[in-house]
């Protein structure tokens, strides 16, 4: 009986350590993925607002076009400064 208890306690310790480290890694990876998704959402919202703003003020278009957010308008020449 004592031997069985000792073996089970050792197994318990091993499984507990494995559980702790694996759970920690899962949480770290999940938080990294969620952070990336939040960043993507942030950029998507920002781009949507920029596109909405560009309807009112096309002066922002060169920035959007330079970043491949808005397709370059065909047949328009860049304004000379």
């Amino acid at each position: 009986m004592n031997w069985a208890l000792a073996v089970v306690v050792v197994l318990l310790a091993v499984f507990a350590v494995q559980y702790f480290f694996k759970t920690r890694e899962v949480r770290n990876l999940q938080s990294r993925i969620v952070e990336y998704q939040n960043k993507q959402q942030f950029l998507n919202n920002l781009i949507a607002d920029c596109m909405e703003y560009s309807k009112r003020n096309p002066a922002i278009d060169p920035i959007l076009e330079a970043n491949n957010i808005k397709p370059k308008a065909a047949g328009t020449k860049p304004t000379a400064k």
Binding site: A4, V8, V9, L12, Y19, K22, V26
Partner: peptide, 20 residues
């Protein structure tokens, strides 16, 4: 105590496997 320890160890092993 043995039964409880076996149950806890089994739970931890299962959770560890799921986490894996």
């Amino acid at each position: 105590l043995l039964v409880v320890a076996i149950c806890v160890a089994g739970f931890l092993a299962l959770e560890g496997r799921r986490n894996g």
